[in-house]
Design a protein around this nucleic acid. Structure first.
Length: 487
DNA sequence: CACTAGTGCAA
DNA sequence: TATTGCACTAGTG
């Protein structure tokens, strides 16, 4: 499974099982029927006389695949990634899933009740402004009210009608009270349905904790993903979000410690591009967004305003995503011309970044793939094709993949290193800090409170020294009784 | 029940 | 026409 993922991390075009079959040269039916396709239930439901057959087929197929993948991995220089990162990570993830995270259900339920009241009041206001009752959660019904009945201007279309997305409603909010109310309604409704209502339901009655799945073979860039429940998208930015995170707590006499790679993708950009100015900024441990702002706006570092810094921050992130002038203009609420000027100034200053991005695209067109620091590949067959829409999309993803993917490589390696090479049999003899969550550039641990200081130092060191780049890696950490305090 | 569309949360 | 994910609700078949 993991070898198949490394050899072809695209999830959108075809499933891993089909890919495995392709390598195996067997018909889908045989494999699906024997080791379980869509209709495969729990092992116990398989008739006893067939169990041996299933087990044999599964083992045989796995072994056959291994022999094929071994050569394939070697040919594509993926052996180190496979053996040093992804395979050892399997156990780390298993431990994390089994450990789970403690959640204070009562706290979430209380928030839920408060939200229910706010929603009720907002619903009343919205119906009053609309002049009728309807389902606010239905974009279709809402669109009819806003854009047909109330004749508000439709600013964006979807496949099926007029968009009621937050970006549209924000533009209408100052003129139309109902738009502002709906935005507020959506915020609360989202938090209530996805977090305060759903999470308490997911608490395992046996462990009294929530056990997510960390999916290792899903993301095309090499990142992990999390599901059932997704613990990688717990609110963080708003005050209400912090309240949700206050419900993620440590056991009695323990604390949560959160370790966060600071600006890891921009540091990787600095490393790959070897841009002198970017490297200097990170070597000096400067505020990278402020530095970028001072360069773009040609003001001294100390004179950068918060607005300028915010704009520079958007540009810095935009670069990582291959953003164009139009979307920069949109998110900064400035003209396209002005946005283009910012981008031009950015590249005038970070000259080597432009060269690097161009070289990524050249390489992708020539070889058909891009690579991370550890050689993880992502293929872009459409990048040399004629369809400009697909090509542009591929170009942006090709710029992003080495940066996002290298960050994934690095944190995965750090996770393996933290876990150490302890054999399973010695697991209970050795004190290993309990890793409970990974959120792309962040690791969360639960440790006895007397160990907080020691563990903070040792894990920060491991994470910062896991690889030596042309710029230092910086890790910030915090601890507390809840994820809100630690983060 | 399976699936899609729209929407919105995270890094 | 800014990357990568997952989940919720509505709506369709």
């Amino acid at each position: 499974m993991i070898a198949a993922y490394i050899l072809n991390p695209e999830r959108t075009r075809y499933g891993l099982k089909d890919l495995a079959l392709e390598f195996l040269g067997r018909k889908s039916k045989t494999y699906e029927e024997l080791i379980g396709g869509k209709n495969s239930g729990p092992l116990l439901e398989i008739p006893e006389n067939e169990l041996a057959e299933y087990a044999t087929a599964d083992s045989q197929n796995t072994f056959d695949l291994y022999k094929i993948f071994e050569k394939e991995l070697e040919a594509k220089k993926q052996t180190e990634l496979f053996e040093k990162i992804e395979m050892p990570l399997v156990e780390v993830l298993a431990d994390m899933e089994l450990a789970g995270v403690k959640i204070e259900a009562r706290r979430l339920k209380k928030i839920s009740e408060e939200l229910a009241e706010k929603l009720k009041a907002l619903e009343k206001d919205i119906f009053c402004l609309a002049g009728e009752k309807f389902n606010i959660n239905s974009p279709q019904q809402l669109g009819k009210i806003l854009f047909e009945k109330l004749k508000m201007p439709a600013l964006r279309r979807t496949k099926t009608g007029s968009s009621t997305g937050a970006d549209v409603l924000e533009k209408l909010a100052s003129e139309f009270e109902i738009a502002a109310k709906i935005l507020e309604y959506r915020t609360y409704s989202k938090i209530k349905s996805t977090y305060t209502d759903a999470l308490p339901e997911m608490i395992d009655p046996k462990t009294h904790r929530v056990h997510t799945s960390f999916n290792q073979t899903v993301a095309a860039t090499g990142r992990l993903s999390s599901s059932a429940p997704n613990l990688q998208n717990i609110p963080a930015r708003t005050e209400l979000g912090q309240k949700i995170r206050e419900a993620f707590i440590a056991e009695k006499n323990s604390k949560l410690i959160a370790f966060d790679y600071s600006q890891i993708e921009l540091r990787i950009l600095a490393h790959f591009s070897e841009d002198k100015k970017l490297i200097e900024a990170f070597k000096g441990d400067l505020d990278i967004h402020a530095v970028t702002a001072s360069q773009i706006f040609k003001v001294p570092l100390e004179a950068v305003t918060s607005q300028q810094r915010r704009a520079a921050k958007t540009i810095n992130f935009g670069i990582i995503y291959g953003m164009g002038a139009l979307s920069l203009a949109e998110s900064l609420k400035i003209s396209r011309t002005e946005a283009q000027e910012y981008i031009n100034k950015y590249f005038e200053n970070y000259h080597d970044v432009r060269e690097f991005l161009n070289s990524i695209l050249e390489g992708a067109k020539e070889k058909g793939y891009v690579e991370t620091l550890y050689g993880r590949r992502r293929y872009f067959p459409e990048i040399a094709g004629p369809a400009s829409r697909f090509r542009s999309f591929a170009e942006r993803a090709a710029i992003n993949a080495p940066l996002q993917g290298t960050a994934a490589d690095i944190i995965k390696l750090a996770m393996v290193r933290v876990r150490g090479q302890t054999p399973l049999s010695r697991r209970t003899e050795v004190s290993v800090p309990k890793m409970i969550l990974q959120v792309h550039d962040e690791l969360v641990f639960e440790v006895p409170e007397e160990e907080v200081s020691v563990v903070s130092k040792s894990i920060t060191k491991i994470m910062e020294e896991i690889v030596e780049l042309k710029v230092p890696l910086k890790v910030s950490c915090g601890f507390g009784n809840s994820w809100a305090e630690a983060g």
